[in-house]
Design a protein around this nucleic acid. Sequence first.
DNA 1: TTAACAAATCGAAATATATCGATATTTAAT
DNA 2: ATTAAATATCGATATATTTCGATTTGTTAA
Lengths: 100, 100
Amino acid sequence: MDIVEVSKVLSNKIRVNILDWLKDMEANFPPQTNVPDFNNGVCVCHIQDKTGLSQSTVSHYLTMMHKVDLVTATRIGKWTYYKRNEETIGAYINLLKYNL
Amino acid sequence: MDIVEVSKVLSNKIRVNILDWLKDMEANFPPQTNVPDFNNGVCVCHIQDKTGLSQSTVSHYLTMMHKVDLVTATRIGKWTYYKRNEETIGAYINLLKYNL
DNA sequence: TTAACAAATCGAAATATATCGATATTTAAT
DNA sequence: ATTAAATATCGATATATTTCGATTTGTTAA
């Protein structure tokens, strides 16, 4: 894990917001329709709705968040569900604690 | 303090390096000549030497690090000494812990 | 097997960051 | 006062990021 690469992801308000919204998916997103629960996360379209950005931009954001492993991605049918990867998030904070 | 603004500062390898070098100033910089010790930090010229970047770039980097308070700046005579602001650094890590 | 939908990728334009050399400012020494 | 040194600021160019619409890819349903 690299402080610079993760910081790049975190240096954008919307991406930080997405991480924040994903902390409480039930509260921040409409109920799931194609899967029974939020266990795999939230689909791109719901995240897109909340950001107000274009589909391609949000997909790009989520891809870069996934590349540094801050979120996991699960494809189910036509949908891709994203959720926080608490392990990486915690590891990053720990990295800062000892290396920043 | 703002996650996005601090992350912008941290999304550059040299700036992260500077913070790291300042963790052990005695080990990473030549001995002081115009002040008795490292209590106020390291002067811009020594940091510049270590980065290999231009004076203006390093000054700019240090200014932006100072703007988000990751470092303190102390002018003594012709020199400006920079050092880590552990309070802000700790506060930032704490902020991430509870808000990321 | 086609049509339709969700998501990812591509290509382009706008904006921001990185980086330099030149200039300005501040302070100290002559 | 003048000069010189250290740092800060300015202006410009190169590179990177943001963001979009269009296209492509993967998947399901008709």
